[in-house]
Design a protein around this nucleic acid. Structure first.
Lengths: 123, 123
DNA sequence: TAAACCGTATTAGTCGACTAATACACTTTT
DNA sequence: AAAAGTGTATTAGTCGACTAATACGGTTTA
């Protein structure tokens, strides 16, 4: 069962996108594997304090990307192979790194200062 | 006059916040200094292709934080001292670094891999 | 001085994100 | 078989972000 212990809700970004990204990042980390069971829409919505429809929207998008499979009436499961993993790794990791570099560079931070910052906030 | 050449509009985040953050990051970079002139609401909205009210909202929030001063009828100007600069540096740089580290760590990236990633996307 | 720009404000409307309540058919569990 | 949980769908409504059009008075500029 996928854990949402480390999920932190931001504002200024749609919740359904945050849930979507959280799951994708867990897939990249390898903590979520092929066949893993997802929490039900109702359970997760109760856990996060959001509406079931919001979770449903996240799950629907994941299903449209063929990253999960929903069996009507039963639990939903993760569906992964190496190709899919490589694809979302490229997609999410790329975007996150690019965004981080772009904002840091805009603020005039040098590469060495960036390393120092990363180190500082890593622990 | 503040330049918006490097401004890239994202979706999934309110435009008025993106403009606000862009200006704060330019202040941190030092490319925007005390007394600098801001583009007028109408000019910037035309440049970015958004509604004048959206820009007005960004400027109003900057004025509420005393980072800019608006003279009714005339141009608006940046208002900075060392204390303000230190404060927003702490606010924005802190948040950006923290977000970057949190997402990278969630994806199972090690500190060394993070350095390699930053290096890769830096140029 | 007159034109052109400026900041500010108001009103109305659209649209997406999200909530709320409910229903139905299917699967699993007891 | 019955109960509980599940995915899916529908309808209605709220709320914030954003657009659109317009107006007014002050400042700058030619």
């Amino acid at each position: 069962m996928i854990s949402f212990d480390n999920f932190i809700m931001e504002d200024s970004s749609p919740i359904y996108l945050q849930i979507l990204l959280y799951i994708k990042r867990e897939i990249i980390a390898g903590t979520v594997k092929d066949g893993d069971e997802l929490p039900s829409r109702r359970m997760l919505s109760a856990l996060l304090g959001v509406n079931p429809n919001t979770v449903q929207k996240s799950y629907k998008m994941l299903e449209d990307e063929a990253l999960i499979i929903s069996h009507s009436g039963a639990k939903s499961n993760v569906s992964l192979d190496e190709e899919k993993k490589k694809k979302i790794r490229q997609e999410v990791l790329h975007a996150d790194a690019e965004t981080a570099v772009r904002t840091l560079k805009q603020m005039g931070v040098t590469k060495e200062e960036a390393f120092a910052l990363i180190s500082e906030y890593w622990d």
